[in-house]
Amino acid sequence: MTDVEFEQAVERYGDMVFRLSFSYLKCRADAEDVMQETLLKLYTASGPFRSVDHERYWVVRVAVNECRKLLRSPWRRRVSPMEELQEAAVFDAPAQSELFQHVMALPPRYRVAIYLYYYEDYPIQEIAQIMGAKPSTVQTWLMRARGRLQTILKEAESG
């Protein structure tokens, strides 16, 4: 990969990997570390990719693996303060902020499955491959995530 190609790749994948990693790790510093590690691996990746989709899939898979590695690290700051989560992004509307908080309160694997399904439009089969799980398991995660969000939103409305 040339330097120019690498710069283009950073533009193309930087935010995507960051969003995915933040969804997993709930920490800006960790997510940016994962973004950098992933792009570093892309830079040094040996073979050419079959297509843009293949490259993108490779990047997503590496990012998920990097997140999992980081989650297992004994030195990782395991709990991000609520303030950091609130400052992660500036939202246009309170409803967006509310949705963000609720989604980020879900378990990590649910958050990643939701991100890949609803944001990146990956089919369940591919999400399963990326996350090293069975398709039926991913389906269950998505179903439970939807159920939990529905419950939380209902409680918020009635409260």
Binding site: E32, A89, Q96, L99, F100, I114, Y119
Partner: peptide
């Protein structure tokens, strides 16, 4: 809405 919300999250 999910996309709009998470598109605000940038490195």
């Amino acid at each position: 809405m999910y996309r709009e919300t998470f598109s605000k999250l940038c490195a």
